[in-house]
Deep mutational scan, measured.
Amino acid sequence: MGSVRTNRYSIVSSEEDGMKLATMAVANGFGNGKSKVHTRQQCRSRFVKKDGHCNVQFINVGEKGQRYLADIFTTCVDIRWRWMLVIFCLAFVLSWLFFGCVFWLIALLHGDLDTDYKDDDDKSKVSKACVSEVNSFTAAFLFSIETQTTIGYGFRCVTDECPIAVFMVVFQSIVGCIIDAFIIGAVMAKMAKPKKRNETLVFSHNAVIAMRDGKLCLMWRVGNLRKSHLVEAHVRAQLLKSRITSEGEYIPLDQIDINVGFDSGIDRIFLVSPITIVHEIDEDSPLYDLSKQDIDNADFEIVVILEGMVEATAMTTQCRSSYLANEILWGHRYEPVLFEEKHYYKVDYSRFHKTYEVPNTPLCSARDLAEKKYILSNANSFCYENEVALTSKEEEEDSENGVPESTSTDSPPGIDLHNQASVPLEPRPLRRESEIGSRR
């Protein structure tokens, strides 16, 4: 089982795998120059863009038009607004034209077009017409509009002379109601789609790998820009990579689940303020055997998904993003964004995407760390350097704002901070800030 798991979770494809794949392509008759073999020097295209759209195009789909027309309502909801407006206008105009032609044909076959009612006051002739005051196609078209929109100006009306005319008036009224219901329903469904809710759900630009509770963890940050909550919010993550099976089958995008606390339930989050999602790199993680150097040379993509129900409509929305291997910062942490004021908490989104480097973060893999092949620094050293990194950030910001350097908390000259780390230190809580992250 261990060997199978290692093969499945191998992220960085070796040169031997690339040569094996190329040999397979030639042997199977696919070596026509169009096949692409992804190596370390040639990274694959992003499968999920940063804005959440999937970078996929469908080609050679059989009976595409028929399949889309069979699900016309979903098609109308998914198309762009400009095409929705075109369909909206065409549906009414074509129905008016169709029934206008029908009423014109009825008048033509009944002989109503030969009668001039402007110079004739004989009401008996008017009563013999199928539709009064309809003696041309324009008049028939206007009567069709008046019937379907129930305008009723009063000059044109159907008589009991022709039952077919009466039937067409009733039929057009029913068709008009159906068109109204369909168009209004599609427009309302399109307006109520929770897709735009994703514009106020954000992911951090970069993911980070750092120590948390004595273990290497992959972390990324999510935030909600609205005050309205995302009900039943939960997160998922998958690692996408290519691999070759033991039988020699090439899988271009193998999807591997990344555990973010599904078993323990901590994948469900209360997204009021930005939260750091934590994936513990343990023996079940696809990143277990990867060191910093392996991450730098790897070719994979981590897709992160945030799902929840919109509070206003109770409709489920899904926000997506992805991180390539070069977008994962090893040995970094996110800057705090949640600050405790006197009577409330304040979230500073200008710090949302910012990170700071944490010294002495192990550069080895989580496996080597678990097997004690890498000796961690003293816990006080880690905490102290973590505090120094934050303090230096604040000093830089104070210097930019014009604060005198004498007010900063610099260490005395001639003292090495790293050498001082081995000395037991008193706890130094942050002056006014605390970061709330997901705790395992």
Rank of each mutant, 00 (worst) to 15 (best):
G2A: 11
G2C: 03
Y9D: 15
V12I: 03
S14D: 11
E15R: 06
E15D: 10
E16T: 07
D17V: 08
K20P: 06
A22C: 04
A25M: 08
A27Q: 12
G33L: 08
K36Q: 14
K36S: 13
H38Q: 13
Q42A: 09
C43R: 05
R44M: 10
R46V: 01
F47S: 04
F47T: 09
K49Y: 04
D51F: 03
H53I: 09
C54G: 14
F58T: 15
F58R: 15
I59Y: 13
G65S: 10
Q66A: 08
R67D: 06
L69H: 13
A70Y: 04
D71E: 14
F73N: 14
T75A: 09
C76E: 10
R80V: 05
R80A: 04
W81T: 05
R82D: 03
M84D: 05
M84C: 05
V86P: 06
I87Q: 13
L90T: 10
F92Q: 07
C101S: 08
C101F: 06
V102M: 12
I106W: 02
I106K: 01
I106M: 05
A107G: 07
G111S: 06
D112Q: 02
D114F: 04
D116E: 13
Y117E: 00
K118P: 00
S124K: 05
S124H: 15
K125E: 12
K128C: 02
V131T: 02
E133N: 13
N135H: 15
S136A: 01
F137V: 05
A140S: 12
A140V: 02
L142I: 02
F143Y: 04
S144Q: 00
E146Q: 06
Q148G: 05
G152R: 03
Y153T: 09
G154E: 02
G154N: 03
F155V: 09
R156D: 02
V158L: 04
C162T: 00
I164F: 14
I164E: 13
A165H: 01
V166L: 04
S173P: 03
S173M: 10
G176S: 13
G176F: 02
C177E: 08
I179Q: 12
I179F: 09
D180C: 12
A181S: 14
F182W: 04
F182C: 05
G185I: 10
V187T: 11
K190A: 08
K193Y: 07
E199V: 06
E199N: 13
T200D: 06
V202Y: 10
F203G: 00
F203S: 01
H205S: 14
N206G: 02
M211V: 12
M211P: 14
M211D: 03
L216P: 09
C217Y: 06
L218G: 01
L218W: 01
L218P: 02
M219I: 03
W220P: 01
R221L: 01
N224C: 07
N224P: 11
N224A: 13
L225H: 11
S228D: 11
L230S: 11
V231M: 09
A233Y: 10
A233V: 04
H234M: 10
V235W: 03
V235N: 00
A237Q: 00
Q238R: 12
Q238N: 11
L239K: 01
K241Y: 07
R243A: 09
I244L: 08
T245G: 15
S246R: 08
S246G: 12
I251P: 15
P252Q: 09
P252C: 14
L253N: 12
D254L: 09
Q255G: 12
I256T: 08
D263H: 06
G265L: 09
G265R: 09
I266M: 12
I266S: 12
I266L: 09
L271Y: 07
S273F: 08
S273N: 07
I277A: 06
H279S: 01
H279G: 00
E280V: 09
I281R: 00
I281C: 01
E283R: 14
Y288I: 01
D289P: 08
L290A: 08
L290F: 10
D294S: 07
D294I: 01
N297V: 09
F300V: 02
E301R: 00
I302L: 11
I302H: 00
V303A: 09
V304E: 00
M309Y: 14
V310H: 11
V310L: 08
V310N: 12
A314P: 06
T316S: 12
T316V: 13
Q318T: 08
C319N: 12
S321P: 00
S321W: 11
S321A: 13
Y323S: 01
Y323A: 00
N326I: 02
N326S: 09
I328R: 00
I328M: 01
G331A: 06
R333S: 14
Y334V: 03
Y334C: 02
E335T: 06
V337S: 06
L338G: 03
L338N: 03
F339E: 15
E341T: 08
E341F: 10
K342N: 09
H343A: 08
Y344P: 09
D348R: 00
D348Q: 01
H353I: 00
T355W: 01
L363C: 13
L363T: 03
C364Q: 07
S365E: 00
S365F: 01
R367G: 00
D368N: 08
L369H: 05
L369N: 02
A370T: 08
A370V: 12
I375R: 12
N380V: 06
C383N: 15
C383D: 15
Y384M: 15
E385L: 07
A389I: 15
L390W: 05
T391V: 10
S392R: 11
K393Y: 06
E395Q: 10
E395V: 11
G402K: 05
G402I: 12
P404G: 07
T407Q: 09
S408F: 08
H418R: 09
N419E: 14
V423S: 12
L425V: 09
E426T: 13
L430F: 11
R431K: 13
E435A: 08
I436F: 09
I436T: 14
